[in-house]
Structures are given as C-alpha cells and as structure tokens.
C-alpha cells in the first residue's frame, strides 16, 4: 500500500509543478501586450481576433479537451481488454476513466463556450462542427456513466464494454463531421502562434499528470469499495 500511496503523491507533486509552471506562463502572458493576437474588432477575420485577451482561455481549454480524449481512449482500450479477458479490473478502469473524462469534457465545453461568447458574442453555435462534435462526445459519455446502476455485475460490465467501444467510434466520426457537413458547419478555430506552443505543451503535460493522479485516486477508492463489498459478504456469510 505504501508504494501505491507514494505513486499517488508523486503524481500529485509532478502535476502541481507543471500546473504552477502553467500558471506562471499564463501570468507572464497576462502582463505582456497581446502582440501576436492582433485586435481587429468583430467579426473575426483570419489572422486576428476580436477578443485577443480571451484567447488565453485556449491555453487551458486545449489541455482539458486533450485529457478528455485521452480518458475516452483509455475507456476504449479497457473495454476491449475486458471483453477479451473478462477481468473485472478492466471494467473498473474503464468506469473510472469515463467518470473523470466526463468532468474534463464538461469543463472543456464550458471554457470553450465562454471563449465563444468573448469572440463571437454567443455562447453556442450549433453550426460549428467542433462544438457539435464535442457535444456529441459529452452526451455519449454521460450515457456511459449513467449505465452504471449500483452494483456491477458481469452482465452490466459486458454491456458497458460494448457501449464503450461504440462510443469511442463516435470520436473520429464526430471529428470528421466538420469536413462532411460542408456549408452548414463552419468551424472557427484558432491557429496557435509559435510562441504559445511551450505554454500549450506545459499545459498538456500538467493536465495529463493531474488526470493520472485523479485516476489513481479514483481507482484506490474503487479498491476500497471492493473491500467493503467483500466484508459485507463475509458478514452475511457468517451470520
């Protein structure tokens, strides 16, 4: 147990280091004039933004979204692994990862729509391919988490695994939708000037480490809950 705890602490410390670095970089950008983000007033033209300061939202919105995709990828891999090995631990991993992923994708959606409001005046545009795609993702994985109804039996695990596999298949499908839906779904995405790349990288690393820390903690709680179930069963057995 000591080794597991030190892993958790290690992840927490590492993620906090990077988070601190990210915060420092963010603050640095805050004090600098937004030279690479030329201001040209609404409507946004390619190459300049009507809300250049709000652009910095992307410096933590992108890591949030990326971590969400990572977590859903883990759900997919764990679902496949469960179907092949029937080891319930894969199912536990999938569930934990999905739960954290839902939190991250919700935050990504919220921060993204705040940026949208700053840039375009509206919180949401259904025509935007990427917003649409992320909303799809959010819906699907909320459904995945909702499938968990109390005790986890083999049947439910099998169901969730299949759903987890199909759910991940919607990720590339939604991503591609912005190209298929031609005129309808115009997506406004920023291009990131080179000077933001280090900050983005730091952000991605920070959030990934933080995600791993959360996952680790969540799995430990799951292990505890297993123990609880085991104790209850032995109590009922001996009673």
């Amino acid at each position: 147990m000591g080794r597991r705890e030190s892993l958790g602490t290690g992840l927490l410390v590492a993620s906090m280091v990077f988070m601190f670095l990210l915060a420092a970089l963010l603050a640095f950008y805050l004090s600098e004039p937004a030279s690479s983000f030329p201001d040209c007033g609404p409507p946004p033209l390619p190459g300049c933004w009507s809300a250049p300061d709000a652009f910095r939202i992307f410096l933590f919105h992108v890591p949030l979204a990326w971590t969400a995709y990572l977590s859903f990828g883990i759900v997919f891999v764990a679902s496949v692994a469960y179907l092949r090995t029937r080891d319930l631990r894969w199912d536990t991993l999938a569930m934990a990862s999905a739960e954290i992923g839902v939190v991250f994708v919700t935050l990504a959606l919220l921060t993204g729509s705040i940026w949208n409001r700053a840039e375009l005046g509206v919180y949401w545009r259904w025509e935007d391919g990427r917003l649409f795609a992320t909303f799809v993702l959010w819906t699907v994985y909320i459904a995945y988490v909702a499938l968990h109804t109390g005790t986890r039996d083999v049947q439910e695990a099998r169901l969730s695994a299949v759903f987890g596999i199909f759910a991940f298949a919607t990720v590339p499908v939604s991503y591609l939708s912005q190209f298929f839906f031609s005129s309808l779904h115009i997506s406004i995405r920023p291009t990131f000037p080179a000077e933001t790349w280090p900050t983005l990288a730091v952000g991605v690393v920070a959030f990934t480490l933080f995600f791993l820390y959360l996952l680790h903690w969540r799995l430990r709680i799951d292990a505890l809950e297993f123990r609880l179930v085991g104790i209850k069963e032995t109590m009922e057995g001996s009673a």
Binding site: V136, V140, A143, L147, L159, F163, F166, A167
Partner: peptide, 8 residues
C-alpha cells in the same frame, strides 16, 4: 445505448 450513439 442506441440513441446517444446513433443520434449524431
């Protein structure tokens, strides 16, 4: 199971 995946 079906509607969230099939909807979009």
């Amino acid at each position: 199971i079906m509607i969230p995946i099939a909807l979009f």
